[in-house]
Amino acid sequence: MKVVFTRDFLALILSVAVVGLGSGATLPLTALALTQAGYGTDVVGLLTAAQAGGGLLVVPIAGWVAARFGGRQTIAGAVLVVAVATAAMQLTSNLFVWAVLRMACGAALMLLFTIGEAWVNQLADDATRGRVVAIYATTFTLFQMSGPILVSQIADFGGGRFLLCGAIFLLALPTLATIRAAPHVESEQAHDSWRHVLPRMPAIVVGTMFFALFDTIALSLLPLYAMAHGIATEVAVLFASALLLGDTTMQFPIGWLADRLGRERVHLGCAAVVVVLLPLLPWAVSSPWLCWPLLVVLGAAAGAIYTLSLVACGERFRGAALVSASSLAGASWSAASFGGPLVAGALMKSVGNESLIVLLLVCALAFGAAVLWERRRDLQTAS
């Protein structure tokens, strides 16, 4: 394995960790503040949708922005926007203003993650890409998971909790300043817009949407699913933790496996694991000796579908095309995380709780079909 853990990579990972902590704290803090103010889940959902909408709005211009202003400047600007918008929520309780501020955060975070993922792919080479991207994804997930813990400690800081969260984002700026080589996006490649990139990445889009759906359902609806099967509330909430444990701890080993055996083969293998394990969950849910290992492995395989989708972006695209591909992956995440739980919740209410498993299974099968279709298309093109 080549040495890829340069100072640039370590500084970028540290910056991502800070942003993960800040974003992981801001969303639950917003929900908490709205609930304490007497608003219901409908308003919380609308504010969450506003952030997702901001991310979707910036997708068509992400590549142009990165080429026009440079990767380092765009990331630093995005960090500043998120910090200021988060801190500004401390100064008003007007819902319309909050919605605008959340949209600004969503747009800035979309730019930040788009360029950050492209940057990581540029720092890696084809022999180590799986492991490098896995470290990036694992670091972000670990610190994002720490966000709610931070919220539990600052929940009573009514006069300054949003200011504190905004200040957290600013901690990323000093580490960004130490990076020697900025992400390379050639302005003459700006014509590689998302319209040209999208036809070349159907499996990446479907894989990202699958994991976004899986992630949001795990955090919001899976505990309800477990409770419907007679699991006690305090145990049911741990189902999501078991999935996240598998996602967090297994990404590097799976990335190493992808580097050794080939990304596409491992990608399909992860889809197969998800397709096999999901139908077992209704029977395993009441058997702790079977349920907890199943959840950990399921979380690892589902998380790897997303991680290896990022790896596929780095394999296929360069320059502005890579930035556009990363932004489309981010847009797919936003769209699925916004609409997925609404669809799943409606199906659970009207059809039954097992429709949750069916929905995830259909999405996993769609991803596997997309990978197989891409393989067939590439073989036909080569011949």
Rank of each mutant, 00 (worst) to 15 (best):
K2L: 00
V3D: 13
V4A: 13
F5I: 00
F9N: 04
I13T: 11
L14N: 00
S15D: 04
A17K: 08
V18H: 04
G20C: 05
L21M: 09
S23A: 09
G24S: 10
G24R: 10
L32F: 13
T35R: 15
G40T: 09
D42P: 04
A49S: 08
Q51T: 09
G53M: 09
P60G: 06
A66F: 09
A67G: 03
G71I: 04
G71F: 00
T74A: 06
T74Y: 02
A76L: 09
G77V: 04
A78W: 11
V79N: 04
A83T: 05
V84H: 12
V84C: 08
A85E: 01
M89N: 10
S93M: 07
A99P: 07
C105H: 10
G106L: 10
G106M: 08
A107Y: 07
L109F: 14
L111N: 00
T114C: 08
I115R: 03
I115D: 01
E117H: 03
V120Q: 03
D126I: 02
T128D: 12
R129H: 13
G130Y: 03
I135A: 07
F143P: 08
A155C: 03
F157D: 11
F157M: 15
G160Y: 11
C165D: 15
C165T: 15
A167V: 05
F169A: 01
L170F: 02
A177W: 11
A177N: 11
T178R: 14
I179E: 05
I179F: 01
H184I: 11
V185P: 10
E186L: 13
Q189N: 13
A190T: 13
H191P: 00
R195T: 13
V205E: 09
G207K: 05
T208Y: 13
M209P: 14
L213Y: 06
I217E: 07
L222D: 04
A226T: 02
G230W: 02
E234R: 05
V235S: 13
L243H: 06
L243E: 04
L244A: 06
D247W: 15
I254L: 14
L257S: 01
L261W: 14
L261I: 06
G262D: 05
R263V: 15
E264L: 10
R265I: 06
L268D: 08
C270W: 01
A272V: 12
V273I: 15
V274A: 15
V276P: 06
S286A: 14
S286F: 00
S287C: 00
S287F: 00
L290D: 07
W292S: 01
L295A: 07
V297D: 03
L298Q: 04
G299I: 12
A302T: 02
I305L: 15
L308R: 07
L308N: 12
L310W: 09
G314H: 11
A320N: 14
A321T: 03
A325M: 05
G330R: 08
S332R: 07
S337V: 14
A344M: 09
L347S: 05
S350T: 14
V351H: 04
G352H: 10
N353Q: 13
S355I: 02
S355K: 04
V362I: 14
C363N: 12
A364G: 14
A370P: 13
A370T: 10
A370W: 10
V371G: 01
W373P: 04
R375M: 12
T381A: 14
